[in-house]
Design a protein around this nucleic acid. Structure first.
Length: 278
DNA sequence: CTGTAATCCTGCGAGC
DNA sequence: TGCTCGCAGGATTACA
């Protein structure tokens, strides 16, 4: 479900409601999430307070006073919220823990259960886990690095953008949007891009993600921010979900096809097929 | 080694 | 109205 802007929004929303609070004993549903939950983690969490909450790629990191870390991924349908204690328990609630001194609780709800909650004893252990899975954050990407990374793979541009080890945080929606802004076809062979193409794409990624963060992300399905508010950026999509609708730049109908196993949307005129004529 | 396909789940809209 | 099918903001694994 959520990509970087949505995860960032959740993190920002939760920060004032989480930092400084002390956690009780978490309770888990009987349904497994993507990763296994060790019962010992619940006891380790109890009594700890929250030092910080941050985001890395699409992962949410909760730093505890014990030096441990909670690592949360929202998957496709995950919802991390803080609600008043006593709120009705919704379907698909998989994790909840009471907070003090406020009469609130932190909840993780996930319909499809592609999400996960993990515990790491130290920041170093967490870093070790993320190290091989995530490339740099998409803001201020080193242009030389980005050119090189794209040139190194024979996959489609779409596949490269979805690869979290190249750039962290981009998902299906913002990959399409960035390609459109850069005038690049999502099915283009990544390695065929010119240096200038890569630079433009890099800028497009930053621009699109910044605008989406400013709009509190995109709500097109289950996503809600940590305070339950919906995002607004879905109204600014140039191509995603706009199949058959006119391109905002040239009025040509937007088309859709599958690349890297994901539906990809583009304008056949603004984003000519591989390789771009130089 | 590299790249694609299947897989984990539930819900919803399209089409018959 | 009711059923089946395909698809959905992701990440990992299994296989070609």
């Amino acid at each position: 479900m959520p990509e970087l802007p949505e995860v960032e929004t959740v993190t920002r929303d939760l920060r004032p409601m989480l930092v400084g609070r002390t956690l009780g004993l978490p309770t888990l549903s009987t349904h497994a999430l993507r990763t296994e939950w060790n019962p010992a983690w619940a006891r380790a969490i109890r009594g700890a307070s929250v030092v910080s909450i941050s985001r890395r790629g699409k992962w949410i990191i909760v730093e505890l006073s014990t030096a441990a870390r909670l690592l949360i991924h929202l998957g496709m349908t995950g919802q991390l919220t803080v609600v008043p204690q006593g709120e009705p328990v919704p379907d698909h609630l998989h994790f909840q823990v009471k907070l003090k001194p406020d009469p609130t609780e932190l909840r993780f709800r996930d319909i499809r259960r592609f999400g996960s909650i993990q515990w790491f004893a130290t920041g170093a252990e967490l870093d070790d886990f993320l190290k091989d899975r995530l490339g740099p954050e998409p803001f201020d990407i080193d242009r030389v690095y980005f050119r090189t990374a794209l040139r190194r793979t024979g996959r489609s541009l779409k596949a490269a953008l979805l690869d979290q080890t190249i750039v962290a945080g981009v998902g299906n929606i913002y990959a399409d949007e960035a390609c459109h802004r850069a005038g690049l076809h999502p099915g283009a062979v990544s390695a065929s891009l010119s240096g200038d193409d890569a630079d433009r794409l890099c800028t497009a990624i930053e621009t699109v993600l910044s605008a989406a963060v400013a709009g509190r992300g995109s709500t097109i399905r289950d996503y809600v921010g940590g305070s339950g508010l919906r995002g607004t950026f879905q109204t600014a999509f140039a191509v995603y979900g706009r199949t058959g609708e006119p391109c905002l730049k040239c009025s040509t109908p937007i088309v859709v096809a599958r690349y890297a196993g994901r539906s990809s949307h583009w304008c056949p005129v603004c984003q000519p097929i591989v390789p771009r004529p130089e």
